[in-house]
């Protein structure tokens, strides 16, 4: 009898907690409203909120940044309202899969590996990857003989520049943000000659560039821009060619669930339209101070 009572209490407590935790979707019974082109209205957008100038939180709790303005523009084009919320990185993909929001704009690089789990739109930002080192480092004095290096199209000059890079960085410590396309690049092309340090954020990598714990860092230009423009970055400079193509992928894109084909089409159309009428270029120049938009 006692056990029965104890068991019943346990069930009641758990059920009570579950009841409190449940609430129906905001629009009531059933799925949220849709436009006739299959776009949920409102469109729920998640971003990270700590990655300037893409997305960053303000002291009053609001969000701003390139991706916030872009999301609003895309929603306007699709005729829906945007609900943009910040979500910590560690929960951002499970939240998408669990249906907490419909699309993520958070500076995510589209890669084939990630396409197994989510769909990506066409890219909206694409900038070359650059190495950065302290200005007084001999690395910044080397002449690599070319401005751009396309990994998808390695001609003789590019191969020479790549070899030169390899020789210059031999035995050095190079920092990179963990699990990025840039980490892939280091693993593939320089993995056997340099020590790779993997940072959770670019900002922490910047701190260690300043203290000299790493000899150089690799990231794309939009990532370096806030550091190089800030006070800490005055003693640092890029070196070597801007690297694009190949495993560096097509650029930064919005991510959505795999079963959302109609939303994907609508977003792709809106992004393409924003590129064609010059909005994308304008927003990029406003936030990055140069045209970082994907072509």
């Amino acid at each position: 009898m006692k056990k029965l009572v104890l068991g019943l209490i346990a069930v009641a407590v758990v059920a009570g907690g579950a009841y409190l935790a449940m609430h129906r979707t905001p629009s009531g019974v059933g799925a949220p409203a849709m436009t006739d082109r299959g776009v949920p209205n409102p469109l729920r957008v998640a971003t990270e909120g700590a990655y300037p100038p893409f997305n960053v939180a303000e002291p009053d709790g609001t969000l701003k940044g390139f991706e916030i303005d872009l999301a609003k523009d895309l929603c306007r084009r699709m005729g829906v309202t945007c609900e943009i919320a910040a979500q910590a990185w560690d929960g951002i993909i499970p939240g998408l899969q669990a249906g907490k929001y419909d699309v993520i704009l958070a500076g995510m690089s589209a890669t084939d590996e990630r396409r197994q789990a989510v769909d990506f739109t066409v890219p909206y930002v694409l900038t070359p990857a650059y190495f950065v080192a302290p200005k007084d480092s001999p690395l910044t004095k080397i002449d690599f003989g070319l401005q751009r290096l396309d990994l998808a199209n390695l001609d003789e000059a590019s191969t020479q520049a790549l070899d030169k890079l390899k020789a210059a960085l031999k035995g050095k410590t190079v920092g990179v943000q963990v699990a990025t396309i840039h980490a892939n690049f280091l693993d593939t092309y320089l993995g056997d000659t340099v020590t790779i340090r993997r940072y959770d954020t670019l900002q922490n990598l910047s701190l260690d560039l300043a203290t000299g714990r790493v000899d150089a860092g690799l990231a794309d230009m939009t990532g370096w821009q806030p550091f190089l423009e800030g006070t800490d970055g005055q003693n640092a400079a890029t070196f070597g060619p801007g690297i694009t193509g190949g495993l560096l992928g097509p650029g930064i894109a919005a991510a959505l669930r795999k079963d959302d084909g109609r939303l994907l089409d609508a977003l792709n159309n809106a992004i393409t339209a924003a590129k064609e009428d010059g909005t994308m270029k304008k927003l990029a120049e406003q936030w990055f101070h140069f045209d970082a938009s994907a072509k």
């Binding site: 560690d90 993909i93 499970p94 890669t111 590996e113 990630r114 197994q116 789990a117 989510v118 920092g175 963990v178 699990a179 980490a183 340090r197 993997r198 940072y199 959770d200 922490n204 991510a255």
Partner: peptide, 21 residues
């Protein structure tokens, strides 16, 4: 967070690469 790739660091890196946390 200080670049040491211990078990959780490895898991986080693979999760961020494959998006299957």
């Amino acid at each position: 967070i200080i670049t040491l790739m211990e078990l959780t660091g490895v898991a986080k890196a693979i999760a961020a690469r494959t998006f299957q946390p």
